[in-house]
Design a binder for these strands. Sequence first.
DNA 1: CCTGAAAATAGAACCGC
DNA 2: GCGGTTCTATTTTCAGG
Lengths: 146, 146
Amino acid sequence: MDSTDAKILKLLQTNARRTIADIGKLINMTQPAVKERVRKLEEKGVISSYGASLSPSKLGKETTAFVLFQTNSCEKFIDFCESHPDVIDLHRISGQHNYLVKVVTESTRSLDEFTDACGQFGFSTSLIVLSTPFEHKPLLPNNVEV
Amino acid sequence: MDSTDAKILKLLQTNARRTIADIGKLINMTQPAVKERVRKLEEKGVISSYGASLSPSKLGKETTAFVLFQTNSCEKFIDFCESHPDVIDLHRISGQHNYLVKVVTESTRSLDEFTDACGQFGFSTSLIVLSTPFEHKPLLPNNVEV
DNA sequence: CCTGAAAATAGAACCGC
DNA sequence: GCGGTTCTATTTTCAGG
């Protein structure tokens, strides 16, 4: 993991659909060299996946919330979240609450339905997202210049 | 926004580096047709960006936390978070706390340094992530079969 | 790192609802 | 006119030397 890898990672995090050749031009490196580095970064698991970010509002999802949850039926709650289409992230956390759930849904009405449905597993507190100054900022390796 | 768009969006969210031609094969559509749909989805802002997800632990970042924050200096706090390399997401939220900050950092030690540095702006509560059953689940359009 | 074959892309011309 | 297909020139990928 050197500064070249860091540059490649930054470029891929910024725009995953960039071509290998394009990355090569930007960092003054030949295409096979870049390709080989990307292959190794994927193989080592440094790069875990490539994804597209969608605009929730353009999909008719006007409400985003973080739901803090307290439950004893962890297995069942995980399965419930896994299969619920509005649940985007699920984290187990320290503190009074066991879980932090990110929910992207149609409206406060549908959020209400979600928390109601959760009721069978435990207790929730919802934090409604009013705005998001930024999100998914690129992750940089420690101790490396970019 | 029809079921074909929904399929394309799902495939791109799952793997943004898939080729247009490959997507075409999977949904039985020619390459220019897929290309045109993707172009429109980008133009309309339904697709906001393409990114790579990295493994924090492979980058030497062993601690992830959500920090709830209460402040009066919103502008300054946003700038601080924006320029801090360990802050990945920043959301303004309802409730007693103003902000929810996702932090990915080296250790609990460096998390401690972060919250100390935040101290000048207000008060924080940290929720340490113990595990993440899943994250970045694909967003599906409302009322459309995939 | 270079090279050449194979694949993917971008664009034009055309067709049918 | 919109959304789809085919065809083609160009670019990108990828494997072998």
